[in-house]
Amino acid sequence: MQYFKVTLIRSGIGMPKRVNGILQALGLHKRMRTVYHPVSPDIAGMIFKVKELVAVSEVDYKLSQKEQHELRKPPKGYYVEIPAQEAGRI
């Protein structure tokens, strides 16, 4: 299934009520928030209404908010060794 990956890159502050309403309906509550919506004419129409404020790409996966957040995390700087026996190398 194809999805629209929509990120709010420009704030909706000061825009008409209808524009802000569409942002709320899409789940874009603050800047840099990314949401996934299935490709459909009604979602496309909503994105079209706020095209100056968002970045859109078509993807074939959907990430939850938690998974999306994990992508932004910096690397931990360390990793835990697995014993060779457990890893199946012996």
Partner: peptide, 16 residues
């Protein structure tokens, strides 16, 4: 943005 929307919709064969 408009290109992305229309190309995604044309794959499904819908027109907005």
């Amino acid at each position: 943005v408009v290109d992305t929307l229309s190309s995604a919709l044309s794959k499904q064969g819908v027109v907005v």
